[in-house]
Design a protein around this nucleic acid. Structure first.
Lengths: 260, 260
DNA sequence: GGTTGACTTTGACGTTACGTCAACTTCTAA
DNA sequence: TTAGAAGTTGACGTAACGTCAAAGTCAACC
């Protein structure tokens, strides 16, 4: 039995162009080529094509399909790899779906173009690269998991809390209170406590680093300087002081209290 | 505040190439271009870029993002459309995952390259186009849903049953029994009953059409002619006879029985 | 002031798996 | 014979940038 290119294409539910393409990339050669240049395919071609199409359905790239079919690689390895990719992809899409859903809900709920809101506060998911670079993947994943576990209301509350803190820093800076003052250090402690929620333990280094990040990264400064130019720098300085002095003092104070 | 292209790229977690690309497609223009040709971006650019990246995260195409940001299209419409796409995509991937899993399981279970088996029998998912063209989308979806509802074992049994039928047709043809004979018509009825499982009601037309399909489509003939050349044609003829005579006779018989 | 290294520009090709012309030849049925 | 269907090769288009390449710019150091 022999089929023309169209016959085969229709039989297998694909197009002649695709068959020519497969021929070109060496995935499926015609069994015969007429002296007029026409391509002809036989039963064997059909079977191979069916395998190709199946593997393609499974999402394998043509190059991988070629390797699998030619047995240059054990098929299970390719499949297992592919399965992992599929699972991750489904995960990713699931998150996107949730994202789009909440965006949609809020947009419809009249909460203006919520797009802005996402960037308000502290969106943990946006800074993966930097965060993992600075504090390691593990810390990021903990924070991320924690963040995902929150309800929408909790997330909002969490964000609001740090917006309030930023506003208080702005007011303090505006009035001219020094960063070492008890008032400003109290605000700073609220920031510290707020951060502790995400990671559990906030080291002194982490805290100082974060402060530097505030001023180095325009996304952060934008959130703080909205309460007056220089608020970001002011906040960073307050954090530095808090980390270097106040915590030590508190530690000493706590120890004294315990031993007293 | 003003940023160079790299500054902005790093801040937003993307690349300078991307920013140039966005400029090229008219999605994000620099706020200023130095006389040296350098691109500079301001706070407004940053905000717009953040929106762009968010919408991109949600999976929207750049063209759509442009429309949303420029308000030429209400965002909810674009998002809703996109949500549908995402849901369908997740569905598709879910099916792929199941597919790969069973393929993997069977391949490991030593059932040879199971790829062949998928094409054995009657794979409902492979013929969507043709089937819907000939018998309408509704009929296809019914059949497809039914097929998906089966367990693996059921699927196998179902396939086996039709393989047996094909083999019996082959034997009958081999021995030379005519298609009108009771023996062959009995086999044909098994084929008819088997088909009834998929669609509920098998009309005379459907049955005849399917017969024609057997001989017109090499995928079908391959399954039948494996039991001897001409088995597909033989089967088609038997189906024609069954549809045109036997069923009428049965109907008459049934009516007589009821009225008698 | 020259050199080095980081940064910038435009331009253009590469990626994936074909779709879609275009220009031309060949087969088939009336 | 002639129209129409089907075949061929060749080449560009797609989405969203990645990745050179060649060349100009800028800041800092010796």
């Amino acid at each position: 039995m022999e089929w023309s290119i169209q016959d085969l294409a229709r039989s297998a539910g694909t197009t002649s162009r695709t068959l020519r393409h497969y021929g070109q990339v060496g995935l499926l050669a015609p069994s015969r080529i007429g002296r007029n240049g026409y391509r002809y395919y036989d039963q064997e071609s059909l079977v191979r094509l069916q395998r190709i199409l199946l593997l393609r359905e499974l999402g394998l790239a043509l190059a991988d399909i070629g390797q699998v079919l030619d047995g240059e690689r054990e098929p299970t390895a390719a499949l297992r790899t592919h399965l992992r990719l599929l699972l991750r992809e489904r995960e990713r899409i699931g998150r996107q779906i949730e994202s789009v859903r909440t965006t949609l809900r809020k947009t419809e709920g009249g909460e203006q173009l919520m797009v802005e809101e996402v960037f308000d506060g502290f969106d943990h998911t946006q800074y993966e690269q930097e965060v993992t670079q600075r504090w390691g993947r593990e810390a990021y994943q903990r924070a991320d998991q924690w963040w995902r576990s929150l309800s929408d209301a909790d997330k909002k509350a969490f964000q609001q809390r740090q917006l309030d803190i930023a506003a208080d820093f702005g007011r303090a800076h505006d009035v001219g209170i020094p960063v070492e003052s008890d008032e400003v250090q109290a605000i700073t402690q609220r920031l510290y406590d707020w951060l502790s929620l995400t990671t559990g333990t906030v080291t002194k280094e982490y805290f100082v680093n974060l402060g530097e990040m505030y001023v180095a990264d325009p996304r952060f400064t934008a959130n703080y300087d909205v309460h007056g130019d220089g608020t970001a720098v002011f906040t960073r300085d307050a954090m530095k002081v808090y980390a270097e002095f106040v915590r030590d003092a508190m530690k000493v104070y706590a120890e004294r209290k315990l031993s007293g």
